[in-house]
């Protein structure tokens, strides 16, 4: 089965993860920019981070036959640092015009402060100007309220709902999203957010329309194979192949193709691997390793 993981933080993962992902059918990934586990102290850190998403990380993915796209934005946690927030916002217009940037994100609420709301609204407006979809993070704490507030803000800004992917849904928030025109992402985590069994139940209840799943694997306890693992459980549980394909391939491909930067034609063909390539003088290989070359 071809798999598209629409939310995974590969900068925190190893080449073993890339190999395993490729072996398990993952062909395309989207890496949203987020925070690094601790606050950045200056705007230069953002510049380097955005550049690494667009450069080295995309190259690393390509070395395992995986197409890597990213979303760029100011995450809600760091929206609370007023000086830094302004500096990062001023960078965004140029980064959002770069190749392979398929949405503005992750944006949204964390503590649900006024500062977060202001920065969230401005990035929604920026996405409209840039003609890009948005990837919206919903908060861990006070999630239901935060989700409702996110949907309200999208509506009040006049952002087109079909271009918004609201992520990290639960049993309680999914129906709220489906009542709108937005798309609903689900993060399958080992302990928090959503798990495979619960996800199967949700799919049985709500079907596949505008529903996506992702691993959101990052530096925390997470699993980059959660999408294929959930796919397996869906199959075992009697969910049809067509429904599964809609969730793990068609929906993410269709959603991000709205950016006009992800060409649906040929996206399902695995790019050939050439590990003799270098990026800025660097290779994923270490001394003595034999490069994989497919030509």
């Amino acid at each position: 089965m071809k798999i598209f993981d629409p939310h995974i933080h590969m900068t925190s993962r190893t080449t073993d993860d890339y190999s395993a992902m490729a072996q398990n059918g993952i062909l395309v990934i989207v890496e949203p920019s987020f925070w690094l586990g601790q606050p950045r102290t200056n705007v230069g850190s953002f510049i380097d981070y955005f550049n690494s998403l667009l450069g080295w990380e995309r190259f690393r993915a390509s070395q395992f036959g995986i197409r890597h796209f990213c979303t760029i934005g100011l995450n809600p946690k760091e929206a609370n640092n007023p000086r830094l927030a302004e500096e990062v916002l001023s960078l965004l217009p140029r980064y959002l015009q770069k190749d392979g940037v398929v949405a503005v994100g992750e944006i949204g609420y964390d503590d649900q402060t006024d500062a977060e709301e202001r920065i969230f609204a401005r990035q929604l407006e920026l996405a409209m100007e840039m003609d890009l979809p948005v990837l919206v993070h919903t908060p861990h704490r006070d999630k239901k309220r935060g989700t409702i507030r996110s949907l309200d803000l999208i509506r009040s800004v006049g952002f087109p709902e079909e271009r918004a992917l609201i992520d990290h849904n639960t049993e309680e928030t999914l129906p709220l999203i489906l009542d709108t025109g937005c798309w609903a992402g689900h993060t399958i985590y080992p302990h928090t957010k959503m798990d495979e069994v619960r996800m199967v139940k949700l799919v049985k209840e709500y079907g596949s329309e505008r529903i996506l799943i992702n691993s959101a694997a990052d530096w925390g306890i997470s699993d980059p194979l959660k999408v294929p693992k959930t796919t397996d459980l869906m199959l075992e549980s009697g969910i049809t192949l067509q429904t599964i394909r809609t969730i793990v391939w068609d929906n993410p491909a269709h959603f991000f193709s709205q950016s006009q930067r992800l060409d649906l034609a040929g996206i399902d063909a695995r790019p050939s691997i050439d590990q003799t390539e270098f990026y800025g003088g660097s290779t994923v290989l270490r001394g003595g390793q034999t490069p994989v070359v497919e030509r």
Binding site: R141, D142, K144, T170, E171, E172, M194, R198
Partner: peptide, 14 residues
């Protein structure tokens, strides 16, 4: 209310 909602979220997730 926030803590009550959190309890509901946990309950809904089993």
């Amino acid at each position: 209310r926030m803590a009550d909602d959190y309890a509901s979220e946990r309950e809904a997730a089993g």
